[in-house]
Design a protein around this nucleic acid. Structure first.
Ligand SMILES: [Mn+2]
Ligand SMILES: [Mn+2]
Ligand SMILES: [Zn+2]
Ligand SMILES: [Zn+2]
Lengths: 137, 137
DNA sequence: CCTTGCTTTAGATCCTGTCCAAGGTAGGGT
DNA sequence: ACCCTACCTTGGACAGGATCTAAAGCAAGG
């Protein structure tokens, strides 16, 4: 994720300890943390970091397309660093764990013009729900 | 919707004026009201009805599978009486208006076994986002 | 009718997320 | 190396959505 920070710095983003730590926390595959989880992990490395800064940083990363914001029902949104290859989500109805998935079909094409009601459709979001192997017992 | 109320009464649901009014408000096609919108409309007919009762009634209707709960990003959930024929949603990014849609493909089948990560997938929810004709100007 | 257990109600409370004013600091300019 | 200043961070207030509570109300079976 250090190339991410470098990229953003070149675009005029000030490189602060807080932003560095948030970026570190968000590194990895199948990472889908809530803002408060990001805050808790960031605070291990930088105890004074505030919730407001975590929210600010996440909002900017989302706005710049570096992080994906995934809204899950009524609960807290989750933040996903895997923003460069589009994908969808598989969500466990019991424990809430989340995996990235890549369906085969062209889901946008699955919506025929007769079903578009004059909308200019630009994006499709898919959530598959089920029970994960750990919860299956 | 009166058969709905009858059905529920037979299952031990007490028939109150409040529940009757909420059911009436939720009648129709392409109805996707927020809880507060339901409350506002219900209050026209029954001024003393409380927000808590609207929330309680909606929760129960959802729990009994008579109404669908649709969560839209950070905003208030919407309640959809069209629960008996499964469908997906087309959502305007600007004004938030919502339409029911029925994609052609088998979206569950679009998730190949190699992408299931051992989950027992039971449900798929799709949200198409775009700009509605009214907002297109 | 009565009774009883389910319902309703207002208001408190919780959770997520945003806003604010005050103080701090990255990093370009010198 | 040191300033400056525009940008950043902070804690706490705030807001909207939704749930919870305890007291009062009422549907409906007996
Ligand atoms: Mn993801
Ligand atoms: Mn619908
Ligand atoms: Zn699970
Ligand atoms: Zn619109």
């Amino acid at each position: 994720m250090s190339d991410l920070l470098e990229r953003l710095r070149e675009r005029g983003w000030r490189l602060t300890a807080q932003r560095r730590v948030v970026a570190e926390v968000l590194d990895g595959d199948h990472v889908h943390l809530t803002a408060d989880e990001v805050h808790a992990r960031a605070a291990r490395r930088l105890p004074e970091i505030s919730r407001a800064t975590v929210y600010n940083t996440l909002r900017e990363l989302v706005h710049r397309g570096e992080v994906l914001e995934v809204s899950t029902d009524g609960r807290a949104k989750r933040y996903d660093p895997n923003a460069h290859r589009p994908h969808h989500h598989l969500l466990c109805s019991r424990c809430g764990s989340m995996r990235d998935v890549r369906p085969t079909g062209d889901l946008l094409a699955d919506l025929p013009p007769s079903q578009s009601f004059g909308f200019t459709v630009s994006e499709v979001e898919v959530t598959y729900r089920g029970v994960c192997p750990d919860c299956a017992g």
